[in-house]
């Protein structure tokens, strides 16, 4: 395939996105085994892995797209669908499990009207489960974005989520 055709990627949503991805790739270009660090940073930047970015990596690092998709679907950290502004992680580690985290998850699912693994329609929240965030002594724990909440009881769930809705509407 001619180089031009190979570069005819699906387009980025924003013009600046291409520069962001190019910047991330440049950071790790000379590192051996750089595929994962590049993908992790892109995943963090967009909250998911947009297709044009994956094609971009494939071009630049000379890794077949199939291999990139295999890596993307293998590791839990990556998402191939867009995720919400706030990512909620309910810890299902053993410590949290025996202290009732499945009930926090149920409450969150009802509150947000989605199942875990899904995103609310307004793209405000994505609900995910995580296998231990290491807060076992303060179980059950949930993480919203970068904030960790320990010793959460089911009745507090609503209030925690509301505090993010308020912030979002400001």
């Amino acid at each position: 395939m001619p180089e031009e055709a190979a570069r005819a990627r699906t387009t980025y949503a924003e013009v600046t996105d291409e520069d962001a991805v190019a910047g991330i790739i440049a950071t790790y270009r000379d590192e051996p085994g750089n595929l994962l660090p590049v993908m992790l940073d892109i995943n963090r930047h967009f909250n998911w892995l947009p297709r044009p970015a994956l094609e971009h990596i494939s071009d630049e690092l000379k890794v077949p797209l199939t291999e990139i998709l295999r890596v993307a679907s293998f590791y839990n950290a990556f998402s191939l669908t867009p995720r919400g502004k706030n990512i909620i992680n309910v810890c299902l580690g053993t410590g949290c499990f025996v202290k009732g985290s499945p009930r926090l998850l149920e409450r969150l699912e009802r509150k947000l009207g989605i199942r875990h693994g899904e995103t609310t329609e307004d793209m405000a929240f994505t609900l995910e489960v995580v296998r231990c965030i290491g807060c076992c002594a303060l179980a059950p724990a949930i993480r919203v974005g970068e904030a960790t909440y320990g010793r959460v009881n089911p009745d507090q769930v609503s209030k925690i989520i509301d505090s993010y809705i308020e912030t979002a509407s400001l």
């Binding site: 051996p32 085994g33 994962l36 295999r70 890596v71 293998f74 590791y75």
Partner: peptide, 20 residues
């Protein structure tokens, strides 16, 4: 990147090498 099996040493090595 969130894969329990990467605690196994040969899987961990594969992961550092940038593979599944």
């Amino acid at each position: 990147a969130g894969a329990f099996v990467c605690g196994e040493e040969t899987a961990l090595i594969a992961s550092i090498e940038g593979r599944v």
